[in-house]
């Protein structure tokens, strides 16, 4: 049986394992639970009315983007440190950054929709919004740098250095509402018990989603590196055959 037929015969074995399948099911159940609670069960806010329901998608999205970018920085540091140097760390960093950009984008869009309802505008050059947009663009740049070419270790080195610089923006974004006058409210847990529960549920569900996506994406990157290496080996062999 060839590799191709083996894969086609067992498509669930490409990047999945029993653990990721169980995690995927738990995540789907969590998404349904969160959507149900967020849209139908939690009460409206005294000040913001029904628009507060956007919080259950917006806040966990922002939390996850922070988490993903911090994981990118820690994995990059692990790659740069000689004793733990491995391309697996680099692939975790790259996969986590992709997921972080996705969730930062979601947070920007949901925040914009929420802003239209509470502030009357989709966008304003407020400190929190501007620094968040800057963080988003920085990590889009990071992903572009990862695709500049070169060997796997060249890619890993340059992107690791960039990740360690980019993560310094996170405290700036987080504390921007305290450092400057801002329309955006500060982090607060002063809310109804069910609202708080749903918010924490959102954080847990989004974190499960992140772990599932990270495992699959970093395995996909490992497959991509293997395919690249095989292609390079074949090209070198063909060139040697020509010369010989």
């Amino acid at each position: 049986m060839t590799a191709s037929t083996a894969t086609r015969g067992r498509p669930d074995r490409v990047t999945g394992t029993p653990f990721t399948r169980a995690l995927g099911i738990a995540t789907l159940v969590g998404i349904v639970w969160l959507t149900w609670f967020g849209l139908f069960v939690t009460p409206a806010d005294v000040n913001q009315g029904e628009s507060v329901r956007i919080m259950y998608a917006h806040v966990p999205g922002a939390w996850l983007a922070y988490l993903a970018f911090i994981v990118t920085a820690v994995s990059s540091a692990a790659y740069l440190w000689r004793r733990t140097r491995s391309l697996t760390w680099d692939r975790i960093a790259g996969a986590s950054a992709e997921i972080g950009v996705l969730f930062m984008g979601i947070s920007l869009v949901t925040g914009s929709l929420w802003g239209r309802l509470t502030w009357g505008t989709f966008w304003t050059w407020d400190a929190r919004l501007t620094t968040t947009a800057f963080l988003f663009v920085t990590y889009v740049g990071y992903l572009a740098v990862r695709n500049l070419g070169g060997t796997h270790h060249q890619r890993a080195r340059r992107s690791a250095v960039l990740a360690l610089l980019a993560v310094l923006e996170i405290p700036l974004v987080h504390f921007s509402v305290e450092l400057w006058n801002s329309l955006h409210q500060e982090a607060s847990v002063a809310m109804d018990g069910l609202m708080l529960f749903t918010l924490f549920l959102g954080v847990i569900v989004f974190t499960l989603m992140y772990v599932w996506l990270l495992l699959h994406r970093q395995r996909a990157l490992a497959l991509q590196d293997l395919v690249d290496d095989t292609g390079l080996d074949l090209a070198i062999a063909a060139r040697r055959a020509e010369v010989g």
């Binding site: 590799a3 191709s4 083996a6 074995r13 990047t15 996506l213 699959h216 991509q224 095989t230």
Partner: peptide
């Protein structure tokens, strides 16, 4: 997109 890309790549990589 991740699952689709993985399946395409896995066809070129032995188990």
């Amino acid at each position: 997109s991740v699952v689709r890309r993985s399946r395409r790549l896995a066809e070129q990589v032995p188990p």
